[in-house]
Design a protein around this nucleic acid. Structure first.
Lengths: 191, 191
DNA sequence: ACCTGAACACCGTTCAAGT
DNA sequence: ACCTGAACACCGTTCAAGT
């Protein structure tokens, strides 16, 4: 969000108006970039499904996810804003959750992680590790590794304590619709 | 950052120019608010130093911290931006870290948390719990509790695995200056 | 049909004029 | 001395005119 539309258009060698022909809004442009990144991570997750050690694969998946985010802070920040409400980002986010769910289920079966952990949890905690290290900026380049490992320790079955709240049930394809109706955030306009 | 300066000035019953008399920049205004919140939490932390169960006190401190952040999302977001580089925010942040350090030391001594955990860690992980739940917005109002407890499990000595990186050494008053010089992010202008 | 950049609306910031 | 709001600069967005 740092760059102005004028700069973006100039670097792309097109007029400002043409940018708005492709993306109705500056935020839609950001949303398109973010959902691309999410799909990138989902692809990595699907690859890791074939790994021999599911526990290690899950940790590797989370590591790849934070690395993706840590590479440019802009993406990390964008994920915090209202870009989340964009339909394309939501869809990509659900695809990512599904990949994470498969990985998590394998790890759960092996006893590598406690069994009250879902794929959604994994995605959210991966973001949390990134955000934990963010305040110190580039001072501590790979500090996120410390927090990812600590969080992963919390995901392990050894010494686990009961959690005060069930995992969030977001749109999952193998799940009936929540009878209490859609209590999600209002969707943004389609882009 | 949602509100415009014009709106803020109007609500305060003063002219726009007068706002800039008190805060050189809109960001400085945000920084002042953020550091107030940080000091609020530091005060809570100092109160909890007298609690009988240091482990429970530390968890309570973290809970209070996330609650403070979760109450308005604006603050949670501001903490992600360049407001962090503001000198006043840094100073408040250091005061907060010191309070956290005392609480953490007590908990460490009791064996309630592993002994490679610092006060800084506690502050950063507290923010992480808040951020983990943020993507789902008000859909899942107190989801952060789930992640705070999970992270706290990771902080416990039982089943702890070694962490891949030392804790960050930010300005601590009982510590010599880092001989490699200040490798912190560039400070923003004084406000 | 598709692209363009002038024009518009909005907002942070400055400062000459008012008290 | 302190406050004000008109004026300026900047940026996202629109759209009449050009190809």
């Amino acid at each position: 969000m740092e760059a102005s539309i004028a700069e973006i258009a100039q670097r792309a060698g097109i007029g400002k108006g043409t940018v708005f022909r492709h993306f109705a809004t500056k935020e839609c442009l950001a949303a398109a970039i973010v959902s691309d990144r999410l799909d990138e991570l989902a692809a990595i997750g699907r690859t890791l499904l074939d790994a021999t050690d599911p526990g290690a694969a899950l940790l590797e998946f989370m590591t790849a996810g934070v690395e993706l985010q840590a590479r440019d802070r802009a993406f990390c920040q964008a994920a915090t804003t209202s870009v989340r409400r964009d339909p394309a980002v939501r869809a990509a986010s659900d695809r990512l959750s599904q990949a994470a769910e498969s990985l998590t289920e394998q790890a759960r079966r092996q006893g590598a992680v406690r069994d009250d952990i879902t794929g959604q949890d994994v995605i959210l905690l991966l973001g949390a590790a990134c955000q934990a290290a963010a305040p110190l900026g580039d001072t501590a380049a790979d500090l996120w590794r410390r927090y990812l490992y600590l969080i992963f320790d919390g995901m392990r079955p050894e010494g686990a304590h009961p959690l005060p709240r069930p995992a969030p049930a977001r749109a999952r394809f193998d799940q009936a619709v929540d009878p209490s109706g859609p209590d999600q955030e209002p969707s943004a306009e389609r882009c």
